[in-house]
Simulated assay, not measured.
Amino acid sequence: MIVTQQQPNIRHLTLPDLEEYFVAAGDKKFRAKQVYEWIWQKHAHSFEAMTNLSKDLRQKLSEQFTLPALQVDATQYSADGTIKSRFKTHDGHLVEGVLIPTENRQTACVSSQIGCSLSCKFCATGYMDRKRNLSYDEIYDEVVLINQQAERVYNKKLSNIVFMGMGEPLLNYNNVLKAIERIGAEDGLGMSHKRITVSTAGVAKMIKKLGDDKVRFKLALSLHAANDTKRNEIMPINESNNIKALVEALNYFYKNTKNEITFEYILFKNFNDSQKDADELVKIYRQVPADLVNIIEYNPIDAVKFTKPDEETTQHFMQYLEAHKVNAHLRRSRGKDIDAACGQLANKES
């Protein structure tokens, strides 16, 4: 039996790789640049779409390479303007991304993994198995497809990208950084890294690696509890990456990059919403050069019985932070009616 080697993904070739391929094939070197533009700037999802190449060349490329791309599998529109998309990968997996429009911004919330392995108790994705990492070209496709939605529906391009969808970005480190490099490249989407935020549940070693690599994007830490006992209860990753280790890693990251750091903190009724909890949060905030604490409304999911505190408790919590000179912002939920809000992404049927 003859076993044929799988054709390589053409998007995993660099421009010099493509130039080498065309020269070796006896073709013109400039063909490489044409193909590269189709892949990364014109967003071709098939060789047939590369219309300035001859039919024979397109056929030859399709025989020697693959061009796997995300496809939009389902789209839901929220009453508040949020759009959730379910994407299908070339091998049949599903992953979700969200377009969040406001008056001044068009933000893409993108996923980095299919499912998640961290099992955070309040997050719908945490109750799914992690199937695999998304490759950098798949993450790039998410951004491209959401940008096309923004242009089609709102006549505006994306202004911001947040890695706050499905999965833990720092456990798919290389693909996430390569995707961001392509998103920022002039021969990619040309978006400033300062408009990109990567959110992590807290992988101290990889936060330090971000510092070593001197990345230029912003970092958000999903804190959600300001002492180890409570954080262990809702975020198992804290058992191996406790708050002290994360504070040290964030300071290292800042020292090496001077990039903006944000804390994310979901309020849960009768769990982390007391004045004592607020005081512990103030103490952590003072240990890190953080720019902002985002206080997030809890969005219910089927698997657990957490609820959000009443408005009065929320306001008291915010007032305590503000009285203690914490730059805090209350983030109201978007897209709750289509399960597109923070912590709700789970590939549910529309």
Score class of each variant (00 low, 15 high):
270 N>Q: 07
113 Q>M: 06
129 D>L: 12
169 P>N: 06
205 K>L: 10
337 D>W: 00
27 D>K: 15
19 E>I: 10
95 V>R: 01
213 D>W: 10
212 D>N: 13
281 L>R: 06
22 F>D: 02
306 F>E: 10
236 P>L: 00
348 K>H: 14
203 V>L: 14
188 G>D: 07
154 Y>Q: 01
200 T>R: 08
199 S>D: 03
182 R>T: 12
337 D>H: 02
286 R>I: 09
13 L>F: 15
46 S>M: 03
265 Y>S: 00
296 I>E: 06
323 A>Q: 14
110 V>R: 00
299 N>F: 06
113 Q>E: 07
41 Q>T: 08
209 K>C: 12
147 N>S: 07
23 V>R: 15
234 I>C: 01
207 I>Q: 05
53 L>E: 10
312 E>D: 14
324 H>N: 15
227 N>K: 10
293 V>D: 07
327 N>P: 09
175 N>H: 13
193 H>M: 10
260 E>W: 13
295 I>N: 01
155 N>Y: 09
288 V>A: 04
288 V>R: 09
115 G>R: 08
55 K>Y: 11
22 F>R: 00
184 G>C: 15
77 Y>I: 11
327 N>M: 03
119 S>W: 12
152 R>D: 09
202 G>I: 01
297 E>K: 07
168 E>I: 01
67 L>K: 05
42 K>Y: 11
172 N>G: 12
304 V>G: 10
146 I>S: 10
156 K>L: 06
243 I>W: 08
2 I>T: 13
258 K>T: 13
40 W>H: 11
205 K>W: 03
103 E>V: 04
218 K>F: 00
10 I>G: 04
313 T>L: 04
302 D>V: 08
272 N>D: 07
300 P>F: 04
